[in-house]
């Protein structure tokens, strides 16, 4: 039943098929191949959190070990997404166990996007005016950056050229502006 094992065909198998094959045969080469496909992603995600090559390498291999165990226990629908969540949690746990505090500054975790506009036109109107008011409350730098990025569709590089802020500043203005906006909007909704 292992006649695919060393044939070229496994290259063409998709993630789900490889996963299934590993579950059936327990042959680590299938899981290894599957993981190798995504190892680059896992490594970069680790690097984003751990900010260190050695640690990211180690973490990647630890995640592989974790994978070997968890693959049998959990139902996996979309492997890439699932592996991403596993990797991120692994790194966050590692950071948390080192110090019970989150990182700040440029390492700040990405916040999730603004609420999409609701269907109800009245609601939409209200949230738009709330957005406007909240935009006013932002600092000039944040307002400019958020406005150019989210509302005018300019890329970071263009914003850098237009405003004279550095790339780092633009990124942090967008992140922080977005977060402040979100907080402000939520407050409005409660009022």
């Amino acid at each position: 039943m292992n006649w695919f094992k060393h044939s070229k065909k496994s290259d063409e198998l998709d993630d789900d098929a490889l996963l299934e094959r590993y579950r059936q045969t327990d042959d680590l080469s299938f899981l290894g191949e599957l993981f190798a496909r995504h190892a680059e992603m896992v490594y970069y995600v680790c690097f984003r959190y751990l900010q260190d090559g050695e640690r990211s390498k180690d973490a990647t291999m630890q995640i592989f070990e974790e994978l070997i165990v968890k693959v049998h226990k959990q139902e996996i629908k979309r492997f890439a997404t699932w592996l991403y969540v596993l990797s991120r949690n692994h790194c966050l746990m590692q950071l948390r166990s080192e110090k019970k505090m989150p990182m700040v500054g440029m390492d700040e975790f990405v916040e999730f996007p603004l609420q999409e506009h609701p269907n109800d036109p009245l609601e939409k109107e209200r949230s738009l005016s709330a957005l406007e008011r909240c935009m006013e409350k932002l600092s000039k730098e944040q307002r400019d950056s958020v406005d150019l990025f989210f509302l005018n569709g300019k890329c970071y590089k263009e914003i850098v050229e237009m405003t004279g802020y550095s790339m780092k500043e633009v990124k942090s203005y967008i992140q922080n502006g977005k977060r402040n906006l979100k907080i402000c909007m939520e407050k409005h909704r409660e009022d």
Binding site: G32, A39, Y43, V110
Partner: peptide, 29 residues
């Protein structure tokens, strides 16, 4: 996360690390 991870170090650093990971996976398998 990918973007931020990738831009945190040079391409050559990443490449060397990824190569090492590839080898480690192979060894582990």
């Amino acid at each position: 996360d990918l973007l931020m991870g990738m831009e945190s170090a040079t391409e050559t650093t990443h490449k060397a690390n990824l190569l090492a990971i590839e080898r480690q996976i192979d060894r582990r398998v």
